[in-house]
Design a protein around this nucleic acid. Structure first.
Ligand SMILES: [Mn+2]
Ligand SMILES: [Mn+2]
Ligand SMILES: [Zn+2]
Ligand SMILES: [Zn+2]
Lengths: 143, 143
DNA sequence: CTTCTATTTGCAAACGATTTGCAATTGCAT
DNA sequence: ATGCAATTGCAAATCGTTTGCAAATAGAAG
């Protein structure tokens, strides 16, 4: 009967915190992000937004994404080939496996890999600021 | 007295193999790639090419890069923020650490990480076609 | 070496994703 | 309610890359 709690970020608080106005377009976009289970791109967010408020513009979507990215509320992923895709920055760090046939994005997490990255960077005399690990693959033929 | 052998790929043979003509612009570009120790972008390759033959066009650089990528002779890297950068596909697989201050690209290789990636993919029911692992960091403050 | 044609070229224009200038609108502190 | 800075929608600009096209050329054939 009880489900895993999917944390919904309080974007409005984050915005207020950043000293930024909470406008109608922003509210709509934030709502879409909050309950997006996927990794939509700007055009897709725009489509979903227009369905709610037809006066929203694509520019505003882009501007809002940049704003949210700036305050660390969302992550931007530039997967191969396509436009940037976004996701709320709630929950733990994870990386992505992209199904090259369907475009599906699957999340995974490996402490071991994260550790090894640190180790490599430090051996090279660097500290990692951020990283990108993307696996591109296809479903394994059912055995 | 003896240096590590830096393998120079025989691009011309690869091209002939692909049933493609060996033209003057292509020869120039191939030469540049052969002795590029870095990961130049199209514009940089264009600059180096023009220094050798001023009649070469940027379009031809792009077309040639696509051709070479198609026959697997070079790799294209779309590092964050900038244009695609290229490198000859000789030698073993490696991944990259990008110095976010200088833009320098440092190569590294981790069998352990490669293994873990395979493991993760197979657990998710996928086979990896290719992947991308990029570390973005800055030089660690001299201790 | 010349001829012949399919391939390749340079150029300019088109492209897709994203950003920007600007005048009109709006959130919100007073 | 008022006033103004922040934000918007729109159109035009930008950046890296691709493409259509007519002119040039590699290289096979003779
Ligand atoms: Mn994700
Ligand atoms: Mn490399
Ligand atoms: Zn990671
Ligand atoms: Zn790798």
């Amino acid at each position: 009967m009880n489900q895993t709690v999917i944390p919904k970020p309080d974007y409005e608080a984050a915005l207020r915190e950043a000293g930024v106005r909470i406008t109608r377009p922003r509210r709509v976009i934030l709502g879409i992000l909050s309950d997006a289970g996927d990794h939509p791109d700007a055009m897709e967010i725009f489509r979903r937004a227009v369905a709610i408020d037809s006066s929203i513009s694509l520019s505003t979507v882009y501007r809002t994404m940049k704003l949210l990215e700036g305050i660390g509320a969302i992550h931007r992923h530039a997967f191969e080939g396509g436009p940037s895709r976004f996701e709320p920055a709630v929950g733990d760090h994870h990386d992505h496996l992209i199904d090259i046939e369907t475009g599906d994005v699957i999340e995974f997490q490996s402490d071991r890999i994260e550790e090894l990255q640190q180790e490599i960077a430090r051996e090279l005399g660097y500290e990692i600021v951020h990283h990108r690990l993307e696996l591109y693959g296809r479903k394994r033929r059912r055995r």
